[in-house]
Simulated scan of single mutants.
Amino acid sequence: MKVTIDEDKCCGAGQCVLIAPEVFDQRDDDGIVILLEAEPAADQHAAVRESAAVCPGLAIEVIEVDKQA
Score class of each variant (00 low, 15 high):
residue 22 E to G: 14
residue 18 L to D: 09
residue 41 A to V: 03
residue 8 D to Y: 02
residue 28 D to F: 00
residue 56 P to H: 09
residue 37 E to Q: 15
residue 21 P to A: 05
residue 37 E to R: 14
residue 59 A to F: 10
residue 65 V to E: 12
residue 55 C to V: 02
residue 47 A to S: 15
residue 15 Q to M: 01
residue 41 A to K: 11
residue 5 I to A: 09
residue 14 G to H: 06
residue 59 A to P: 07
residue 32 I to C: 01
residue 52 A to W: 00
residue 55 C to G: 06
residue 28 D to W: 08
residue 12 G to W: 00
residue 18 L to S: 14
residue 28 D to G: 15
residue 46 A to T: 07
residue 14 G to V: 11
residue 44 Q to E: 04
residue 64 E to P: 05
residue 3 V to R: 02
residue 44 Q to D: 07
residue 3 V to M: 03
residue 27 R to W: 07
residue 17 V to G: 09
residue 59 A to Y: 09
residue 3 V to A: 07
residue 26 Q to H: 10
residue 69 A to D: 01
residue 15 Q to T: 01
residue 13 A to H: 13
residue 35 L to P: 02
residue 37 E to L: 00
residue 29 D to C: 06
residue 42 A to Q: 13
residue 60 I to N: 11
residue 3 V to F: 10
residue 25 D to M: 01
residue 38 A to Q: 12
residue 5 I to P: 04
residue 50 E to R: 15
residue 23 V to Y: 11
residue 68 Q to H: 14
residue 16 C to P: 03
residue 11 C to P: 09
residue 56 P to S: 09
residue 43 D to I: 00
residue 20 A to D: 07
residue 49 R to A: 04
residue 46 A to N: 14
residue 62 V to E: 07
residue 35 L to G: 09
residue 49 R to P: 04
residue 19 I to H: 12
residue 46 A to S: 06
residue 36 L to Q: 02
residue 63 I to C: 12
residue 32 I to E: 06
residue 53 A to E: 15
residue 69 A to K: 12
residue 22 E to A: 14
residue 43 D to L: 05
residue 14 G to L: 02
residue 55 C to W: 06
residue 1 M to Y: 13
residue 33 V to T: 09
residue 50 E to S: 13
residue 35 L to T: 02
residue 36 L to G: 02
residue 33 V to Y: 10
residue 64 E to F: 05
residue 44 Q to N: 15
residue 18 L to Y: 02
residue 64 E to Q: 12
residue 3 V to D: 03
residue 55 C to T: 03
residue 16 C to A: 05
residue 45 H to D: 13
residue 44 Q to G: 03
residue 47 A to G: 00
residue 27 R to P: 08
residue 30 D to P: 06
residue 21 P to C: 10
residue 13 A to V: 09
residue 52 A to N: 04
residue 24 F to A: 11
residue 59 A to S: 10
residue 6 D to G: 03
residue 18 L to F: 09
residue 56 P to K: 15
residue 5 I to L: 05
residue 9 K to P: 05
residue 6 D to F: 08
residue 33 V to I: 11
residue 63 I to R: 15
residue 9 K to Y: 01
residue 58 L to T: 09
residue 65 V to K: 14
residue 28 D to Q: 14
residue 25 D to K: 08
residue 43 D to A: 06
residue 53 A to S: 14
residue 35 L to D: 04
residue 10 C to A: 03
residue 54 V to K: 02
residue 14 G to Q: 03
residue 61 E to V: 04
residue 25 D to H: 10
residue 69 A to C: 04
residue 6 D to A: 03
residue 44 Q to P: 08
residue 3 V to W: 04
residue 32 I to S: 04
residue 16 C to I: 08
residue 66 D to R: 14
residue 48 V to Y: 04
